[in-house]
Each structure stands twice: as structure tokens, then as C-alpha cells.
Design a binder for these strands. Structure first.
Lengths: 143, 143
DNA sequence: TTCGGTGCAAAAGATTTGCATATGT
DNA sequence: ACATATGCAAATCTTTTGCACCGAA
């Protein structure tokens, strides 16, 4: 069975908070991890229903919120205003294709450093950031 | 009367598209320009009603969409998911205070250049970007 | 047995749309 | 006159909440 690290993280969080370990939470965690990031609530709901059609929308929302609190998932809003979830990991930003919707992650230490400098200039204590580049991917530019 | 440039731009756009020049559109344009950016639809609606209480929510939304199409306004979504409008201008990004909501604009040619480089690396043709730094402003850090 | 969890339906908040009426051109 | 604009109310869309019932510990 895959996803051991995240399963363990979830179990630890549930135990710490005296919350319960349910099969719905397992199914949703699996769906989220299988989706490999950037899945919307709707997409997760569909994936989850393939495994267990009795799980409701509400539970998907509530569980994703739980995973965010547990530090396993991160919620993001791109320009369409719909929430997407990705596996929590630091220091990366996104390129989004305006035509096909493809999302590519990138990292730039230079940009990271510059952000810190800018925050310092304005006397802000930085907590997080959002950096998205929108354009057309090589495939969509040609067509 | 202020806002000549934007008024002219709106008139030109209306004429070009055979749309009509109404007093509602004037009032909303004024409210938007007076707000100096980052106003929500709700805030614009309130401002507009001070001038003319008969103007409806719908017209504010429709007119802001029109201003966006005309290239006068730009719609942005920060992390709260509510649309905010700012006067169209290039090359700037935002620092947002997580406590008091203060929004500061900044520019960084270095970051701009790096973005172009990254897009090129991934063979993306860049159209626009969003770059927001979230943290605590100097005032809120102290309290 | 006891809380927390689930699922449904209903509520909520932001934005959009249908439609009859009003108004620029 | 005619086409577009407006304002209201109702509809949408995404997400949240209330509540009775279910199930993990």
C-alpha cells in the first residue's frame, strides 16, 4: 500500500486531536494523493465516488480542510476562483496554460531571495506567497 | 472634472462597440477611479449608492466587466476569493497584510526578468502573472 | 456509551442571468 | 423606433452549516 508517509501523518494528527479514523478519510486521502496535486474539490469528489459512491460532497470538503489543518494538503486558488489542493511542499510556484489548463511547478531561489528583500524593504514579516505565471504552453501556442 | 483619460477611454470603447453611454456607467467609473484600486464589488456598490441609490448590484458587476473589457480596470482575486478591481497598469505586484488587510504595490525588474527566463525555460508564452506576498505589516507585527 | 463523523438538504455568499421596462442614439 | 441598458428577482456555483442518524473508540 502506497502513501505510507501521509497515512502516518494523518493518523498522528487524528490521534493528537482525538479525532476518529474513518474509511471515508482514508478514501479521500488516497484520492487526493493519487491525483498528484492541483485537483479541485469536484475532481476529488468524482474520484472518491468511484471507490465509494456513498461518500458525500460535504465529507470531501470537510476532509480536505482536515488535511490542510494536518499539514498534508495545501489549498490554492488560481484565477478561476475554484479551490485546488496540492500536496504540501515548500518553495515552488506555478506556470498555468491559459488554454489547456496545464499546471507546471517551478522553483527559483533568486525569486525567493528577492521576495525576502522586498518584504524587508516594506518592513513586512513574510508568511507565504503566491506566484503564478499565466500564458500558453508550447503545445497550445502552435495550435 | 477629473479622470479625463479614463473617461475618454470609456467613450472610445463604447463608440467602437456601439454601446451606450449611460449615467450609471459614469457614476461607476468615477467610484472605481476614486477608490484608487483594490476595491471589492461590494465597496464599489456602496460608493455608487451614495451618489445614486437607484443603481443596482447587477449594474455594478456588469459595468466592471465592461471596464475590464475596455482595458480600464483589472480584476484580481486575492486569497479571500472576493474580486477586487484596480486601475489597469503593468508590472506591479502586491504585499498583503494578513491582519489589517493593507495592500502595498511593489515592482521588481529583477523578478520580471526572472519570470521571462522561467517561462522561456518551459517554453511558455507569458501573458500575465500574479505575484502576492502575504505577511504582517510593521504595524501589525508589533501589536 | 459517548463523541465525533456522515450525509442530506438547506443556507450562504458572490456573481450571473431572465425578463419586462426604461433609455440612449 | 430600435437596440442596448437597467433593476429586480430568481438562478447559479462553490462552499458551509444544521440536524438526525451512524459508527469508531
Amino acid at each position: 500500500m502506497a502513501h505510507e508517509a501521509e497515512r502516518a501523518a494523518l493518523s498522528a494528527y487524528l490521534e493528537e486531536k482525538s479525532l476518529k479514523h474513518t474509511k471515508q478519510r482514508d478514501v479521500i486521502l488516497d484520492a487526493f494523493l493519487d491525483a498528484r496535486g492541483h485537483a479541485t474539490s469536484e475532481e476529488l469528489y468524482q474520484l472518491v465516488r468511484e471507490v465509494n459512491p456513498n461518500i458525500g460532497y460535504t465529507t470531501v470538503y470537510r476532509t480536505m480542510k482536515l488535511l490542510v489543518d494536518a499539514g498534508i494538503a495545501q489549498e490554492r486558488h488560481f484565477d478561476d476562483g475554484i479551490a485546488r489542493y496540492e500536496i504540501e511542499h515548500q518553495h515552488h510556484d506555478h506556470l498555468v496554460c491559459l488554454k489547456c489548463g496545464k499546471i507546471v511547478e517551478f522553483e527559483s531561489p533568486l525569486i525567493e531571495a528577492t521576495q525576502e528583500q522586498i518584504a524587508a524593504d516594506y518592513k513586512f514579516v513574510l508568511k507565504r506567497h503566491r506566484h503564478e505565471l499565466y500564458g500558453y504552453c508550447s503545445h497550445c501556442v502552435e495550435s
